[in-house]
């Protein structure tokens, strides 16, 4: 990375974090949503401890998917509305690298908090302690993938008035592998099996998404602005 690209990357990351910090009241909403969705389940299926415990990995991960979807729009929306995205696209630096900076900033403020809150919810649902550790690990590996794939979807729909519902249609099918490996890892951990295979798969998905997702996201942003 040359110096000026490095500077652009860090300035952008810092800027996005700063903006979220100044809007922290809004930034916390996806997190509350995540907690609320999980809390709704006991009301839906009944306070059966065994049932809730069995379903806990699936519940928490589906809630994480929904929370991720809810927060995705904020990656590019306000920059699209106020014209900053044009300046980003017209920068001489590689747009995919700048997109990556924005996605990382987005994950730090919307994905990472989920990782921190999840253990609390796992306790609510009666998950044993060692499975909670695995849950945290899967969230740590999986939620960045959600942000990276989601960025492609948002970049494709940011110019649309009715983008929200289409965004769900675009990204949820692509989220399925993450959901499968992550919730399965937690289930297996609860049953006392080794989960290194699932965690390796999640790590592989993360690396793949890190390397590939910024490229179509950048191409889609150029498309959305034209």
């Amino acid at each position: 990375m040359n110096d000026s690209l490095y500077l652009a990357f860090w300035s952008l990351l810092r800027r996005d974090l700063l903006i979220t910090y100044r809007n922290r009241a809004q930034a916390i909403n996806p997190l509350l949503f995540f907690v609320l969705v999980v809390i709704l389940f006991p009301f839906g299926v009944g306070p059966d401890v065994v049932l809730l415990k069995t379903m806990a990995p699936g519940i928490i991960w589906v809630a994480a998917l929904l929370a991720a979807l809810l927060s995705l729009d904020s990656i590019f929306r306000s920059d699209f509305d106020d014209g900053f995205l044009e300046q980003l696209v017209l920068s001489p630096h590689a747009l995919s690298v700048l997109v990556l900076a924005k996605v990382i900033a987005h994950w730090l403020v919307s994905g990472f908090p989920l990782v921190l809150v999840a253990p609390l919810l796992a306790v609510f649902l009666g998950m044993p302690a060692d499975a909670i550790a695995v849950l945290v690990l899967t969230l740590l590996l999986g939620t960045p993938v959600l942000s990276l794939i989601g960025a492609i979807g948002v970049a494709l729909t940011v110019g649309l008035r009715q983008g929200g519902i289409i965004l769900a249609l675009l990204v949820f099918p692509l989220y399925i592998p993450v959901l499968i490996f992550a919730s399965n890892a937690v289930q297996m951990a609860m049953a006392g099996f080794a989960v290194s295979a699932q965690l390796s798969m999640l790590a592989a998905l993360l690396l793949l998404a890190l390397a590939l997702a910024p490229l179509p996201a950048a191409a889609a942003l150029r498309m959305s602005l034209s």
Partner: peptide
């Protein structure tokens, strides 16, 4: 058409 092509490739 461009958007669809990007999405199809990602898919």
């Amino acid at each position: 058409a461009r958007a669809v092509a990007i999405l199809a490739l990602v898919g």
